[in-house]
Structure formats: structure tokens, C-alpha cells
Design a protein around this nucleic acid. Structure first.
Lengths: 137, 137
DNA sequence: CCTCAAACCTATAGCTTCTGGAGCAATAGA
DNA sequence: TCTATTGCTCCAGAAGCTATAGGTTTGAGG
């Protein structure tokens, strides 16, 4: 049996976050000690590690809830789990693409050498005038 | 003089967002009509376009506030504007790097072909077991 | 056994950047 | 003048936590 602090240390999930996950229904409300403190079993540790890992990978709470529900039914086909991960991969790729455009835009904007005044600063002018952009965004 | 709807159409910033920016102090509270409706001048249109553009580039409200304050003083050196944009560029680059790692991780995870059951699904197992990861995250 | 600091509890508010709805007032075009 | 559209304020919600206040329980040392 772990206390919430112990669980937190072992999974790297902060204490208020664990309580938040309980509220959100990602983990079940655990048993309590006589003094009303949470006492977790090892299975909860594994479940929380799963959640933590999936969050690190950027999956939403909702997606994780779905995946956890799926894992309760090992006999079902796993196409759904695959779909969730694939969709997330697509989102990540989209984000990368968008950020790369921003990177280019910012690189051009930052070409200003700081050796003059705001009046003719390229940063300010570039931000004021969208038509100076080279790509759509 | 533009109404808030007109301003919204011309800048692509939604009406509640314009009011939100006013609340946040990014744009000044404009004159009002007799019936208490907001009436904007052309200068506000430009300012809002600046804000919109900077937001599109992912700059925070706080950074934008700083840049706007700077642009009120065209005689000052523009090193500060440069710094804000450069810092933001660094953040963007970091995000790209992190997302690329996630992309790799997810690519490996998604290699599952969906043709079996959840019990032996690689997606679920990979999420359950951090030690299967190839890189740190 | 007693004490006391550390850990825990609940409830609530705050963060960021908007977005949407309710309920009502003003405006513009026919 | 009528009415559709637009605008007003205020408030709540979304995501995923984080922090604070004010109180209780636990467990280790004396």
C-alpha cells in the first residue's frame, strides 16, 4: 500500500495532479486509511505510470480514458487503440509543420541586428505588416 | 469609424476576442456611440492587425504587450524587440525538437497493424511500459 | 506515551487565451 | 415604423493542471 506521496515519488506525477486524475475519472478512488488518507495498491501505480507516459507523449485526457477503457477488454480487436495513436501522430506532424513555418518567419524577422531604433526596427515592422510574410499562416 | 463587427471582419479577430483584448489592456477602450456601442478608428485596426499577426506567430499576450509598448517609443534602440522575437524563436525551435522525438516514438508505437486483439496490442503495451522507449522524454 | 514536523485532507481559486450563451438594447435597411 | 442584425454585459466553460488556506493524520524520535 502506498500513500499518495509515495505514489507521486514513484511515478513522477505530482500529488495535486493525482487527485485531479481521480476527479477526472482516470484512476479509481482508492481505499482510505482510518484517518481518511488515500492508500493505493500496486495496480494503481501501473495505471498511473501508463497515464503519465501517455501524457508525456501528448495524448489528451480523453484519449487516455479511451485507451484505458480498451485495455480492460483484452479480447477486443485493437484497431481502435491503433486509430487513437495514429490520429495523435497526425496531429503531432501537423504541429511540426506549422512550427517550422513559424521558425522560418521568425528567422527572417530576427535578422534585425539591434543596432538601430524601434522606428525602423524590422521586428516591429514585420509584425505590423502581414504582407511582408513569405508564406501563408 | 468601425463597429466591432466591422473590425472583426477586417482583422479576422473574433468579436469576443476583441473585447477580451480590451480587457487585457492590449487595445484601448474605444469611444462609444450614443447607444454605448464601441466605435473604432483606423489606428485601432492597425494595432489589432499587429496583435493578430503576433498571436498567429505564437507570441504570448505579455510579449505582445511589451512589443506594443516599445513601438510607442520609436526613438529607443530596438534591441529589446529583437530579444523578444529571438527568445520566441528559441522556444519554437525547442518545441519542434521535442515534437520530433514524439513523432519518432509514435511512429514506432503505431507500427501495430490492427489485426489482433487488445491483449497483445503494441500501442497499449508501449504506453504501459516506458522502458520500451528508445529516447528519453 | 508524547510531541511535533511532515504529510495529508477538502474546497476553492487561478492560470492562459479565448469561446459561447443568456437576456436585453441599439442600429440599419426596407 | 418595423424588424433582422448587431451589439451590450456578465458569466461559465474548456484543458490540464497548480497553488493557497485552513485544518487533520501519521509516524519517528525522545
Amino acid at each position: 500500500m502506498y500513500s499518495i506521496g509515495e505514489l507521486s515519488r514513484r511515478t513522477g506525477v505530482k500529488i495535486p495532479t493525482i487527485r485531479y486524475y481521480e476527479q477526472m475519472g482516470l484512476i479509481a478512488a482508492p481505499e482510505r486509511s482510518e484517518g481518511n488518507q488515500r492508500r493505493y495498491e500496486k495496480s494503481e501505480l501501473e495505471r498511473l505510470a501508463f497515464i503519465r507516459h501517455a501524457r508525456d507523449l501528448g495524448l489528451s485526457i480523453d484519449s487516455i480514458r479511451d485507451l484505458l477503457a480498451l485495455s480492460q477488454h483484452p479480447e477486443r480487436p485493437c484497431g481502435e487503440a491503433d486509430r487513437i495513436a495514429s490520429e495523435h501522430l497526425a496531429t503531432v506532424r501537423e504541429k511540426i509543420a506549422r512550427l517550422k513555418k513559424l521558425e522560418q518567419e521568425l528567422e527572417r524577422i530576427v535578422a534585425c541586428d539591434g543596432n538601430h531604433t524601434v522606428g525602423d526596427c524590422y521586428v516591429i515592422r514585420a509584425l505590423a505588416d502581414h504582407s511582408m510574410c513569405e508564406s501563408e499562416h
